[in-house]
């Protein structure tokens, strides 16, 4: 399965300035692991050592936060769009 991953501004310098990358994987965990293998400079920025999501990283599959749809085990289908967003203080506060 090939999914498109949208890269947030904060991670782009460590990923050659790319805004999107295409990654193979059948779960979110696969995709994030593949990204850190290809771009070692983001090691520790996506996944913790125990394989769970970094607490300040929000991962969306087609706009759905994966923490509520299976976490790193959330399945990926072909052509899914994955968005990585840092957790920041809220908008209209």
């Amino acid at each position: 399965m090939a999914a498109t991953v949208r890269i947030p501004t904060v991670l782009r310098p460590a990923m050659g300035g790319l805004t999107t990358v295409s990654v193979e994987g059948s779960t979110i965990g696969d995709v994030l692991l593949e990204l850190t293998t290809t771009y070692p400079a983001i090691q520790g920025q996506l996944l913790n050592q125990d394989g769970t999501l970094h607490r300040f990283l929000n991962v969306y599959v087609n706009d759905d936060d994966v923490r509520y749809i299976g976490g790193v085990d959330a399945p990926i289908a072909d052509n899914d769009e994955i968005t990585l967003l840092p957790a920041v203080a809220g908008g209209a506060a």
């Binding site: 904060v10 920025q45 970094h54 607490r55 300040f56 840092p86 920041v88 203080a89 809220g90």
Partner: peptide
């Protein structure tokens, strides 16, 4: 909003 916040140096600056 996380997409446009460029004051973050790394994800560890998250909130």
């Amino acid at each position: 909003s996380g997409e446009i916040v460029d004051g973050l140096r790394s994800l560890d600056d998250g909130y």
